[in-house]
Design a binder for these strands. Sequence first.
DNA 1: ATCAAGTCTGAAACTTGTTCTAGATTAGCG
DNA 2: CGCTAATCTAGAACAAGTTTCAGACTTGAT
Lengths: 211, 211
Amino acid sequence: MNKVAKVEARAAAPASPPLTERQEARRRRILHASAQLASRGGFDAVQMREVAESSQVALGTLYRYFPSKIHLLVATMQDQLEHMHGTLRKKPPRGEAAAERVAETLMRAFRALQREPHLADAMVRALTFADRSVSPEVDQVSRQTTAIILDAMGLEHPTPEQLSAVRVIEHTWHSALITWLSGRASIAQVKIDIETVCRLIDLTAEPPADS
Amino acid sequence: MNKVAKVEARAAAPASPPLTERQEARRRRILHASAQLASRGGFDAVQMREVAESSQVALGTLYRYFPSKIHLLVATMQDQLEHMHGTLRKKPPRGEAAAERVAETLMRAFRALQREPHLADAMVRALTFADRSVSPEVDQVSRQTTAIILDAMGLEHPTPEQLSAVRVIEHTWHSALITWLSGRASIAQVKIDIETVCRLIDLTAEPPADS
DNA sequence: ATCAAGTCTGAAACTTGTTCTAGATTAGCG
DNA sequence: CGCTAATCTAGAACAAGTTTCAGACTTGAT
């Protein structure tokens, strides 16, 4: 558990030596195994030895690709998020107000997570448990989430105020998911929380009495 | 790691067989050791064997008092929160609007956490990582936090809307702390997020056009 | 004071994340 | 093709959370 983090981990996209085809395939197998095990039993069910076995890769290799279980699960989340962003793009929310559209988008994402609650558990727990050594990857997830929300708002040039609102919405989104996953809040409660926080958007939407 | 959770863990306050003096003392020693180790090196530095040794208690006993490391750290948080609520009570915030007062209170709490960032790390990470087996204890922490915020708002009978706002504020508070602890947000950024979310209070403060 | 039930201790064992090693394989290059 | 560095594999080893157990100690009731 010594997190002395050799600075060697590489993020998903940026300038790492390009992977060969077999390497790309390995990476994909690993992520697939991870998601599959997570879907079964959540965070605890994703055991590194099992991931390695399922993906036909030696344990040491698994650790070369993903330097920790948290890295692996955060990468799994990146993967799923990309997928979801694609899906959401196809059917843009139909609400009038930006707040409505964001709430609808997040509820749509929430419903998707409900279909695989164990997977959601694994990903979200990893995300919030991640320490500094995973910051770049977590940040990437955060940017992706921001992109989804801004998409829903339909904004080209968000004001700083609006970006703050988006940050708060993300905070609420993550934390509300946690309370749901740990059984301390109902689905209905999460819905209310999301709708409540989305009202912040209205607060920043119209700058009528402004310079 | 089998979390088959024997239903046996007892919460802090409710009807558990009252502890003898020596037991109370042991419990206190354990919590003290936990906080002390956490203050040094955060979550990772709180090692059960060390906690046991520091508090002069056998490992098995430690586990009898706190059925997991997470339980221990959440209990540590309860302890610290109580302390903080007491402190905050003494000097109520002086702002005009409820939103101001809440933001000021939270920033005060935040500054306290900054004084012991490692301790904050251990407690907050435990809190958000906790699974269902810790729900009662986490809920208690949540209630305590809610009480602090309502105190700052100065409300006797909060409306459901206001309670929703408080929930969202708590979400933001926890999540913002996480981003700060993992080095993805600055202190200034956390301040902005808190102030932003507190504006929600204004939204629910005046029900002028109401039945 | 004494006994039964419950608690505490010390130590070993078990689990799962992580690291390390020696030897096989593969990739890229001359 | 043949070489060299990088990568991969199998498996042992290590670290820290958790469980277990036999025996010593406390407690509460008689």
